[in-house]
Simulated scan of single mutants.
Amino acid sequence: MPKMKTHKGTAKRFRVTGSGKIVRGKAFKSHIMTKKSQKRKRNFRHETTIAPADRKVIARNLGRR
Rank of each mutant, 00 (worst) to 15 (best):
26 K>M: 14
23 V>W: 14
61 N>Y: 15
42 R>P: 04
18 G>T: 02
58 I>Q: 06
47 E>H: 01
54 D>Y: 05
1 M>E: 04
47 E>I: 06
42 R>N: 13
23 V>P: 00
31 H>M: 03
51 A>H: 06
25 G>C: 14
3 K>Q: 14
22 I>L: 01
5 K>E: 12
28 F>D: 05
29 K>R: 10
48 T>W: 00
5 K>P: 08
56 K>V: 05
24 R>K: 03
23 V>A: 09
3 K>E: 15
27 A>N: 12
64 R>A: 03
7 H>Y: 15
50 I>G: 06
44 F>S: 05
37 S>V: 08
36 K>A: 04
31 H>V: 05
32 I>C: 14
59 A>V: 01
62 L>Q: 10
24 R>I: 00
17 T>S: 02
7 H>I: 13
31 H>S: 10
52 P>T: 07
14 F>T: 05
10 T>W: 05
57 V>F: 02
65 R>P: 04
7 H>R: 09
16 V>G: 01
4 M>A: 15
58 I>F: 02
19 S>L: 12
17 T>N: 08
58 I>D: 01
29 K>G: 03
21 K>G: 06
55 R>H: 13
58 I>K: 05
34 T>F: 12
14 F>A: 00
17 T>I: 07
49 T>F: 11
50 I>D: 02
4 M>H: 15
17 T>D: 01
39 K>R: 15
31 H>E: 07
17 T>K: 02
13 R>G: 02
1 M>C: 09
51 A>D: 05
7 H>A: 05
25 G>W: 02
36 K>R: 07
49 T>A: 01
47 E>P: 03
45 R>H: 15
63 G>D: 08
61 N>G: 08
25 G>A: 14
38 Q>N: 00
20 G>Y: 05
19 S>E: 13
26 K>Q: 12
15 R>W: 05
4 M>W: 15
64 R>I: 03
53 A>T: 08
35 K>E: 10
52 P>R: 04
6 T>H: 09
2 P>N: 03
3 K>I: 13
51 A>E: 13
49 T>E: 15
46 H>C: 01
15 R>P: 11
17 T>M: 09
38 Q>P: 10
37 S>G: 05
20 G>F: 09
65 R>W: 11
40 R>K: 07
40 R>Q: 11
17 T>W: 14
25 G>N: 11
46 H>V: 01
11 A>D: 14
48 T>S: 02
31 H>Q: 09
25 G>S: 13
58 I>Y: 03
6 T>F: 06
15 R>A: 14
11 A>Y: 11
35 K>A: 03
61 N>E: 14
5 K>Q: 10
15 R>I: 15
35 K>W: 10
64 R>F: 09
24 R>D: 03
62 L>D: 09
51 A>K: 00
32 I>K: 15
23 V>C: 00
10 T>E: 14
61 N>M: 14
1 M>P: 09
64 R>D: 07
39 K>H: 15
54 D>A: 06
